[in-house]
Simulated scan of single mutants.
Amino acid sequence: MHINGNTVFIPGASSGIGLALALRLQAKGNTVIIGGRREELLDRIVAEHPGLDAVRIDTLDPASIRDAAAEVLARYPELNVLVPMAGIMRVEDWRKPAGFLESAEDVIATNVLGPIRLIAEFVEHLQTRPDATILTVSSGLAFSPLRATPSYNASKAAIHMLTESLRLQLAGTSVRLQELAPPAVRTELLPGHQESAHAMPLDEFADEVVSLLESEPEAREVLVERVKFLRYGEARGDYDQVVAALNAADPHGD
């Protein structure tokens, strides 16, 4: 995506990576609409950041997605960038069947069905825009698994392959598919992540992402330097060592 002059919708941007990117994209000269479930939080963010707009959306609810999409497109018919950001991460122990199934279903519904439903609502419109982008959000864990979060790893691997596949289907249209694959970042995605020495500071991550988008607007994957250890382990031939190192550093391991 080009770094300015866009109208961008970022569902799941009321905190963390989504909000950090929304504010930076706004500062670069884009019109940015964020989405989230908590109206009072959205109202506060909009009040604190003039020019930012917000729409309530629950990405677990297909009707809410349809309603939010209709509202965004009615208010912003020039919308040309979709960033389906909403996601959850859960620690699961699959050795205890009663303890993981509900969590796994929530993760897949949020992280896989949510982006699929969002893209389904916007893809026809985006093809009418002369320069459009769908920026998906996977993870370094799509390529190297963390033992404690099997459903999250699988959900992000699904987003990676969904992006690869849609890029093939939308070739020849005006819609560009790009994939942002973060490393561990200091957010509230998991308990303890905000203070983790193994996680990248949020501002540092967001600044590097925007710099990459600015310098490489056509990049298929947006990869900060820190995530390349996870992303390219198999290509380098040291995948087993990468997985071992990742899980040795995992505070949620046993």
Rank of each mutant, 00 (worst) to 15 (best):
H252I: 02
L146N: 13
Y152E: 10
R167T: 11
L166G: 04
L177E: 06
G16R: 10
V175P: 07
H49M: 00
D93V: 03
G5F: 08
E92L: 08
R90K: 14
A13I: 04
E218L: 14
N247W: 10
A248F: 03
R129T: 04
E208I: 04
L113T: 09
L223G: 06
S151V: 01
G87D: 02
V55D: 01
F122G: 08
P11G: 10
A142C: 07
T128F: 02
V243E: 01
V107M: 14
I33V: 15
G114T: 13
A157M: 05
L79C: 11
P217L: 06
D240P: 00
E234I: 06
A206H: 06
G51F: 04
T173M: 03
I3Y: 01
L162T: 13
I159Q: 05
T187I: 12
L230S: 12
F9H: 02
P50F: 10
G140N: 07
G233N: 02
R220Q: 13
Q178Y: 07
E78G: 03
A142I: 04
G192Q: 08
Q178H: 03
A197V: 11
Y152I: 13
L223N: 08
H2V: 09
T136E: 00
E39H: 05
A68W: 10
Q26K: 15
A197W: 02
I34W: 03
D93F: 06
I108S: 01
R167H: 11
L141H: 11
E40A: 15
L79W: 02
E105V: 14
T7N: 02
L170K: 10
L141T: 09
E179G: 01
N80P: 03
S151L: 06
V222C: 13
P11I: 09
E102S: 14
D61C: 10
A69G: 03
R129G: 00
G35T: 07
I88T: 15
H160R: 15
L73A: 05
P191I: 12
V72C: 01
P130V: 08
S196P: 01
Q127A: 13
E105T: 05
A142W: 09
G172P: 12
V224G: 06
